[in-house]
Structure formats: C-alpha cells, structure tokens
Write a protein that binds this DNA or RNA. Structure first.
Length: 105
DNA sequence: ACTGTGACACAGG
DNA sequence: CCCTGTGCCACAG
C-alpha cells in the first residue's frame, strides 16, 4: 500500500480483515509499521468509516473495547457471532480467530 | 508549548 | 481473575 496517514493505513488494514477473523489494536498498529501505537489504532477506530468491518477489531484480552451492553457492543457481538466467532465467558479465543496480517491473506 | 485524555498493551501483585 | 502502575503516541483545548 502507498503512503498515507497512520489513520488511513489502519482503516485500509481493517478493510482487509477476513470474515470470521479478528485483529487487536496492537496488531493493526504493528501491521501499520508502528508496534507501539496501539492507542492510536484505537483512536483511528473511533474515527473509522461505518462501511468498514470495524466489529472485527477487539483488544488484546479477547474482549470488546466498547462500553458493555451499549448498542455498539451489541452490534459488534452479534456481527461476530453471525460470522462464526464464538464467545466463551464474554471472551474470544484469540489463538483461534486472530488475523495473521496483510502479508498472509 | 503544555496538559489532559483515550475503542491500548503488558508486567506486577 | 481483578486492579494498578507505566509506557505509549497523537489529538484537543
């Protein structure tokens, strides 16, 4: 991909996460070339276009980083489950669903 | 320029 | 498992 702002790079990466897979904020930052910018990845998601599969982005603990039981939380969880992602005790098993990155797909 | 603030992550306790 | 402190980076006021 060509040179863009970090925010745009993150959005481009999110667009490439396959259905049924997830990526953490830290993963996106790393794939974008900034391993220590997980927080910025979070900010980028706060500002991401609704057309992107934003629901496939979760935190490193395998949990959804939006307010629990909020409409966004319900939407994110429902969409993931529709794609086959299983929640166990409110958590997702990262080892099983984690996206390997833009170079892998 | 400085400070407060996050859809974060990781090491400790 | 939860809670806390520390490191992190860019944005907002």
């Amino acid at each position: 991909m060509s040179e863009h702002d970090f925010c745009d790079t993150v959005h481009a990466l999110v667009a490439r996460i396959p259905p049924g897979c997830v990526a953490t904020y830290g993963d996106l930052a790393a794939y974008a070339g900034r391993p220590r910018a997980a927080r910025q990845a979070g900010y980028a998601m706060h500002r991401c276009p609704p057309s992107l599969p934003w629901h496939r982005v979760i935190n490193a603990r395998g949990r959804l980083s939006v307010a629990a039981n909020s409409t966004a939380w319900l939407t994110q969880r429902r969409r993931l489950e529709e794609e086959g992602v299983v929640f166990m005790g409110g958590r997702i098993e990262l080892a099983r669903y984690r996206w390997a990155g833009p170079d892998h797909d």
